[in-house]
């Protein structure tokens, strides 16, 4: 389907959706279980995506730390994904950024925990063996 290129709607009339429907359709169709989509569903999904982008941006900005600096940063978004239940599904693609040093420390702590568990397991085994 040929879509009117966005930005060409300068002839006064506000277009219903500004995201390209053809692209939205490609993304929808990339889901293997979907067989077909009617035009209304396509338009609604495109519109919903716009609302979603607005909502994600305003939510992250309002709850974010960049408000004083009048800036929206990646961290504001990943915090939103982490803190808000509705944005939870984004947690995987918006992972929290942490310093490598912090990460290493976390890994170490985790290893230690695991080791403790392993130790317990081993001691059980030992007991069983003896």
């Amino acid at each position: 389907m040929a879509e009117v290129v966005v930005g060409r709607d300068k002839c006064g009339e506000q277009r219903l959706v500004s995201l390209p429907l053809s692209r939205i359709r490609v993304i929808m169709k990339s889901s293997p279980e979907v067989s077909s989509i009617n035009q209304e569903a396509l338009v609604l999904t495109a519109k919903a995506t716009e609302l979603f982008v607005q909502h994600l941006a305003t939510y992250s900005y309002r709850h974010g730390r960049g408000k004083e600096a009048k800036a929206l940063t990646y961290n504001d978004l990943s915090s939103a994904a982490e803190e808000s239940e509705t944005f939870q599904f984004l947690a995987d693609i918006l992972p929290k950024k942490i310093l490598a040093s912090k990460y290493l420390k976390m890994l170490k702590e985790k290893d230690e925990e695991d080791e403790e568990k392993d130790d317990d397991g081993e001691s059980d085994d030992d007991e069983a063996e003896s």
Partner: peptide
């Protein structure tokens, strides 16, 4: 996030 939203929806 928007692309993921489309897929999820």
């Amino acid at each position: 996030a928007a692309s993921v939203f489309v897929l999820y929806a």
